[in-house]
Design a protein around this nucleic acid. Structure first.
Lengths: 199, 199
DNA sequence: ATGTTTTCTTGACCAAAGTCAACCATTTCT
DNA sequence: AGAAATGGTTGACTTTGGTCAAGAAAACAT
């Protein structure tokens, strides 16, 4: 399995690059983190976290993609975020509060992930200043992302959100069905269809 | 000014309590933080941060109250949050990204605040693991708050948001004008008035 | 107390997105 | 290839909140 090993090493390198952008890590700090990662495969439509479960892990996506979505009592689904190869995916809210997740996390394609358990993560935070700092930077990043998304919902029309998404991530439109894009934009599929028709 | 001194000491104690809930601090860590705080007074309707300015400080409110709001091109104002005695107020997004604020921060009453400059804060983060950790906990808290607010906008009606606010903070309704509550709930004053009328 | 702002309410009308239903188009399965 | 499932479009109608305008009520200043 030389190809598998090569991809694994590439993933590890990708994670280290990602971290180094936020906080430069010494080898010992990095090794301690890397030693906690375990690899597994996930099938398309398989959920790695169910609504109602407490989330115990943070996953790096080596390949494949995921959607993070809420399911309402009436069965309707509302996508909060999409995650692709190179991203981390978790319900960090559930991880830090220990409360049941209000969202599902589901693979949109077959995927390979590297995960770290929250117990290990919290131990690393205590042990290494640099990793706690990294955790701060990551939490700050999550805050910026969700604050920006809130602003988009408060101050922009669905059409403006769609335009902004096009600018930011036109690739997304080819990779996920339009009804999930609509859901992410906070409108019904019919509405997105009409937005697209009148451009 | 014995009364002023007493209130100042009470504020310092309040901040230390607040921090200790998140991360227990040793005396040296606390002293280093406390030494960075400066006190000042703010008049009603005075802005401590203007839209377009980069935010350079984090403020603890000893007395008084503030609103954090966005102003649109058409002049309409949308309140994102209210802050009262015992809270910290800042545009943390602007602090960590160094980008101009997209919101104003304005005193709703005469106020007294204790502020720390971001340069000092970042220095303390580097110097003390416990303070970096505290910063992580605070960033996590901001993330939880804004994620919850986003969920409220995505999954609840204005009426449900109003009910939830009543449960959570009925005091608020007496302390700030109703049109600001409406703004915080994301509706026009007329709409909030009608929501209240039909209960 | 009186007059002036400021805040809140109500009504008539409008615009935007949701609902429901029918119908294409495309992909997938056998 | 043909059937079935999935995804996307369009039309008629409804619902919700916004807009505009007039007034009532409350807060504040002189």
């Amino acid at each position: 399995m030389a190809a598998g090993l090569a991809r694994y090493l590439a993933s590890m390198e990708a994670i280290r690059q990602y971290f180094n952008q936020l906080v430069p890590l010494e080898d010992a700090e990095w090794q301690a983190f890397a030693a906690c990662l375990t690899k597994r495969t996930v099938k398309r439509k398989e959920k790695i976290l169910l609504l109602g479960q407490v989330c115990h892990e943070v996953c790096f996506i080596e390949s494949g993609s995921f959607r993070f979505f809420h399911e309402r009592e009436d069965g309707s689904e509302w996508v909060t975020a999409f995650f692709f190869a190179g991203d981390f995916v978790t319900n960090y809210r559930s991880v830090i509060t220990n409360q049941p997740s209000s969202h599902h996390i589901e693979a949109m394609q077959d995927a390979v992930i590297l995960s770290i358990q929250k117990a290990d993560l919290f131990r690393l935070y205590l042990e290494f200043h640099a990793l706690d700092r990294l955790g701060r930077r990551i939490a700050e990043g999550l805050y910026l992302t969700v604050a920006h998304r809130l602003d988009a919902f408060l101050y922009e029309s669905p059409e403006e959100r769609y335009e902004a998404l096009l600018q930011r991530n036109s690739r997304l439109l080819n990779e996920v069905p339009q009804y999930m894009i609509a859901s992410y934009l906070g409108v019904k599929p019919e509405t997105l269809s009409r937005i697209r028709a009148r451009r």
